[in-house]
Simulated scan of single mutants.
Amino acid sequence: MSDLTFVLAGPVRHGVRLHAQALGRRTRGAPLVNIEDGALPPGPVHLHFTDRIFGRDALDAAERLAALVGTRPLSVTLHDLPQPSDGASFERRRQGYARVVAGARGVQVSSEHERGLLEQVWGACGDGAMPPVAVVPLPVDRPTRWGPPAGAQGSTDGAVVVLGFVYPGKGHAETLAAMASLSTGVPLVAVGAPSDGHEDLLTELEDEAAAQGRSFVCTGYVTDEDLERWTARAAIPVSAHTHISASGSINRWISAARRPIVTPGAYVGELHRRAPWAVTVAADLPAAIGAALHDPTSTWIREAEWDGAALPDTGTAAAMQLAAIEAIGLA
């Protein structure tokens, strides 16, 4: 190992930081440094970047990153790639991401879909040849137990559960709309807190649920122990994100031996091709949720179905990350 340093950035509970930390801790010989601790040590650095944890917008984030890194050789993993669904922020986001890429020796993304999004960003805003891009899938660790725990919810009065931060497009509103024809005794539970600036979405979801005659509950931030309980006891796991490019939430369900109901999209299609046993792709979300309520066993992955070669675990993903850094001569 050379003098490569892994840099951690963002709030300690943010998924991007937690992902970077997990991979860094599984890489022997490379120190982990908190960006908040001050100046970085000399030598090459690798960090995980999303504009939302580096600046007030993508261009500001790119400038802050450039100032932080200085002349150090940079390898970067990009998250939350810009796409047209970003609306008014799309242009500034893709300009910002192009600047980050321009300052890097090599880039990593979490899916082939994200590679395609990045190629579009670079084609519109980049200059010259794009640095090498490697795909390192988000890890899915093998479950430590199989099947529902004793006393877990499994009947038609159990909750439909969505994991992760609450924000527009995450899939909470879409899931609630799909539940309109279900028994009003089936609640929707959002396991996670609202993203900053989107607290008003909770009121909208509560009002819509009330109009259906059902309850909506948002747990707020949950500990790992609480999250483990929710993934085990949820009746119906759902991920209906409208513009997903890679998903830690889906992977969390899978690593709990749950087979979530997911809505079609480029990334979901990619995941389904790799591991068709891991998700239920639903073109008709109301019908899929209704079917799962009548057959809760369909939301569980059997141990005999598990294929670790299709879904790299944390150790494998860390090795893939390091190999991509080594390929550009920074480790």
Rank of each mutant, 00 (worst) to 15 (best):
V100T: 02
D60I: 08
P260H: 03
I53Y: 09
T299P: 01
H198R: 14
L227E: 08
A318N: 04
H243E: 11
A30F: 08
G248M: 06
A324C: 08
A61M: 00
L23Y: 07
T27H: 02
R229H: 15
T297W: 08
R99A: 15
V191C: 12
T27G: 02
G169A: 12
T175M: 07
I236D: 06
G128L: 05
W306V: 06
P11S: 11
V100L: 08
S249Q: 13
Y167P: 07
V162F: 08
L32R: 11
S298G: 07
V238A: 03
T314I: 10
T71F: 00
Y167C: 10
P260D: 01
L201C: 10
T263N: 00
L201K: 10
G29S: 10
T175A: 09
L138I: 13
Q153P: 08
A310S: 14
S298M: 06
L8H: 00
P168F: 13
V101T: 05
L188T: 12
R99C: 03
E114W: 02
I53A: 11
Q21T: 06
S110G: 06
L285W: 06
V7P: 10
G87C: 04
G147H: 07
S249M: 11
P137D: 03
L23Q: 09
A309E: 13
S255W: 05
A193K: 15
R72P: 07
P187H: 08
Q83H: 13
E206P: 03
A193Q: 14
W253K: 00
C218A: 15
G329V: 05
V133T: 13
G315I: 05
A134K: 09
I236Y: 02
S247Q: 05
D51A: 15
A318D: 06
A134G: 13
E305A: 14
P237F: 03
V162E: 09
D86K: 04
W253L: 01
A178R: 03
P237Q: 01
D3R: 09
T71L: 02
A232S: 15
G269K: 07
A152W: 11
L330D: 06
H172T: 04
Q321K: 13
Q153H: 14
R17F: 03
A235D: 04
T223K: 13
L188H: 14
G269A: 10
V136Y: 00
A88K: 06
H113L: 00
C218W: 10
G116C: 03
S247P: 02
S249L: 07
A104V: 08
P31F: 05
R302Y: 01
F6K: 04
L78M: 12
T231Q: 09
W277D: 02
D60Y: 00
S245I: 03
R26C: 10
L23G: 04
H48A: 08
E36V: 13
T144P: 01
H272K: 11
V166P: 06
G126A: 02
I289N: 01
I328G: 04
T71V: 04
